[in-house]
Design a protein around this nucleic acid. Structure first.
Lengths: 321, 321
DNA sequence: TTGAAAGCGATACCAA
DNA sequence: TTGGTATCGCTTTCAA
C-alpha cells in the first residue's frame, strides 16, 4: 500500500485518518487515496485497536431464547443510535456456551462496552470484563448485578398489571399460563409472581397452568377447564393467549363470558381475534436513551453503577376480558 | 501476567494454548493457570489474530428488515453448528450504513468468512472482502453474486406454489398482497412474480394488492373487494393473511366460499384461525449444512463458487382455500 | 524445559 | 512536509 503510493506507512496513516496535527501536501494525499482505492485497501481494525489500546466495539450477547418482534425493533433502534455515536455494535452468538466460558469469549474481543441481556452474568463476570478493559458493562434483565449498570426489566410488573386488571373486572379465580418451553422461565416466573402480588390478601386464587406451545396441549388444558373452575386467565403473552382462546372456544367455553383472557405484548394478532384480545402492552426503553447511557458510562467508567427501571407495562383493554 | 507466575510470556502462551510441540512441566503449568485465574487474564483476540494472520470469525450482517421467527431459529442453529466447528459467529448491525461503506466496515474486522443475507453485496464488494483476507463469502438471497458462494433463496418458488395451488382449486381471478412496508420488496416482488408464472398462459388473472400492515388499510381493501371481483388471494404471508381474513369476514365475505385465502410461513397462528389457514411452508437450509459449506469454503478458498438452491416450498392445505 | 526476540498492521512521536 | 521507529499483545522459531 505504502509502496504503491511511494510514501511511508506513516504518511498513509496520516492521510487516511485526516490527522490534523500533521500537514500533508495535496498531491501526496491524492496519490495515497488513489492507491488505497486501487488496492481496495481497508485498515485492519485489530491492529488499530491493539495500537490504540481500545476499540469502539459494543458487544451484545445475542439472546438464545426466541424473543419477539418487539425486541428485534429495540435492537435495531439501539444499533442505529449507537452507530450515530460512532460505536460499532456487534451481536455475539452464544448458543451452547455458558457462564465463565462465555464471559471469557466476550472479554477476548476487548469491547469498550457490553450490553448483556438476560441473566448470564454475575459479579465475577463483570469483574473479568472490567479488568479486560470494558469501560461499561450494562445488564438488561430482571435484576442488577454488582459492578454493572442495570436496565431493570422486571416482568413482574407485567404480571402485576394483568392480575390487577382481572381482579378489577371482578374475577377471583385466576389462572396463569406458564410456558413449558425452556428458556422462557426468566420471563414467566416473574410474570406469575406479579399476578400473585396483585391479588395477595384479597382471597382471590392464582393457579399455575403449565402449557406447551402446541394445539394438542392447549386442547388437553381446555378439556379439564371446567373442573379447574377458573374465571380468568393471564396467558403469558398474546401468542399463548391465541392458542388458548381457540382451544377454549372449541370446548364451548365463552370468552370473556365464562373465562376472561388477557395476553401480553400487544401484538397485531391480538387485535384480529374474536373477541379482540385484551393485552398488556410492554414498553421497552428507547434505543436512543440506552445509547446515551452507554456513551456516558464509557466516557466516565468510574461513575457509580446506574440502575434504572425501564420496563413499562399498561393494560390495553379490548373484548376478551 | 508472566511476571506473577514468574515465567516468560512465551511460557504463558504455551500453557494456555496447550501447545503440544513444547513440553512444560506440570508445576509450571499450574503456576501459570493459577496466576491467570487470579488476575482474570483473558488473551487479546485482536493481538492473536494479528499475529496469526487470520481469525476464526464468521461475520453475518444482521438483516435490517424485521424478519420472522423462522429466520431466528435458522440463525441460532447456524451459530451452534459453526460454534462446533470452532468458529465464532458475530452479527454485525448494519442499520443506516450502505453499500461500499458497509463492506469496508465488515472488511476492517478481517473475518475469515462472511455470510451476507439479502442483497447488499455486489461483485465489487465481494472483491474487496476477498482481498481483505476473507476466505469465504457466501450470499443468502435471491440471486448469486460473482465471486461468492450463493445459497439461493428465491421466493419466486413460494409464490409459484401458492399460485399453482389456487389455480388447481379452480380459482381464476387471483389477488396477491404486496406489503407496503419498505424492505419487504425483496421478498414480495419474487412471490408476486411466482404467482404470475404459475398461471401464465391459462387465462387466469393476477391482481396486485398493495397493503399496509394496519387494520384500517385492510378494511379499506375489503370494502372494495366485491368490485375487484377476485375469487382467491395469496396474502404474502400468514400475518398479512390473518389481517386480511378478519377484514374480509367483517365485510361479510366468506372464506373460502367466496374468496380462497392462502398465506406463507406456516406459523402457528394460521392453524388457530377459523377457517384454519392454508399456507406455504418454507424450508430454510439446515444450519448444519450451511456451516459445513462455510467450513469447506474456508479450507479451500480457491474452489469455484458453489451455488445451491436451498429454499424449499410446499403447500399446507387447510380450510381457507 | 524455558527464555529471548522477531514480527503481525497501524499509529504517534521525534528527527530530518 | 515527510520518514524512521517504537509500541500495542500475542505466537512461534531458535537458542540456551
Amino acid at each position: 500500500m505504502a509502496r504503491l503510493a511511494g510514501v511511508s506507512r506513516a504518511t498513509v496513516s496520516y492521510v487516511l485518518n485526516n490527522t490534523s496535527a500533521v500537514r500533508i501536501s495535496e498531491p501526496t494525499r491524492r496519490r495515497v487515496r488513489e492507491a488505497a482505492k486501487e488496492l481496495g485497501y481497508v485498515p485492519h481494525a485489530a491492529a488499530r485497536s491493539l495500537r490504540a489500546g481500545h476499540s469502539r466495539m459494543v458487544l451484545m450477547p445475542a439472546p438464545t431464547v426466541p424473543v419477539g418482534p418487539l425486541y428485534g425493533r429495540f435492537i435495531n433502534e439501539l444499533q442505529w443510535a449507537l452507530g450515530r455515536l460512532d460505536y460499532t455494535v456487534v451481536q455475539y452468538g452464544t448458543v451452547g456456551v455458558h457462564g465463565d466460558e462465555a464471559v471469557r469469549a466476550w472479554a477476548e474481543l476487548r469491547p469498550v462496552a457490553i450490553l448483556a441481556p438476560g441473566s448470564g452474568l454475575d459479579a465475577r463476570g463483570v469483574a473479568v470484563l472490567r479488568r479486560s478493559g470494558a469501560r461499561a458493562v450494562v445488564t438488561l434483565g430482571p435484576e442488577a448485578v454488582e459492578g454493572a449498570h442495570a436496565l431493570l426489566m422486571d416482568h413482574e410488573t407485567v404480571g402485576h398489571c394483568a392480575g390487577r386488571h382481572l381482579y378489577d373486572r371482578g374475577r377471583r379465580r385466576i389462572g396463569v399460563v406458564v410456558p413449558r418451553e425452556p428458556g422462557l422461565g426468566v420471563f414467566s416466573g416473574p410474570r406469575l409472581e406479579g399476578v400473585r402480588r396483585a391479588v395477595r390478601g384479597t382471597g382471590a386464587t392464582v393457579t399455575e397452568l403449565p402449557l406447551a406451545y402446541e394445539e394438542a396441549a392447549a386442547a388437553r388444558l381446555a378439556a379439564r377447564w371446567r373442573e379447574l373452575g377458573l374465571d380468568a386467565v393471564f396467558a403469558y403473552n398474546d401468542e399463548y393467549a391465541m392458542l388458548l382462546m381457540r382451544a377454549l372456544q372449541d370446548e364451548g367455553i365463552a370468552v370473556p363470558g365464562e373465562t376472561a383472557l388477557i395476553g401480553a405484548d400487544d401484538l397485531m394478532l391480538g387485535r384480529l381475534l374474536r373477541p379482540r384480545l385484551s393485552t398488556v402492552r410492554i414498553e421497552l426503553p428507547s434505543g436512543r436513551d440506552l445509547a446515551e447511557l452507554v456513551d456516558r458510562a464509557v466516557r466516565d467508567p468510574a461513575a457509580p453503577p446506574e440502575r434504572r427501571t425501564v420496563l413499562g407495562a399498561a393494560v390495553v383493554h379490548r373484548e376478551s376480558s
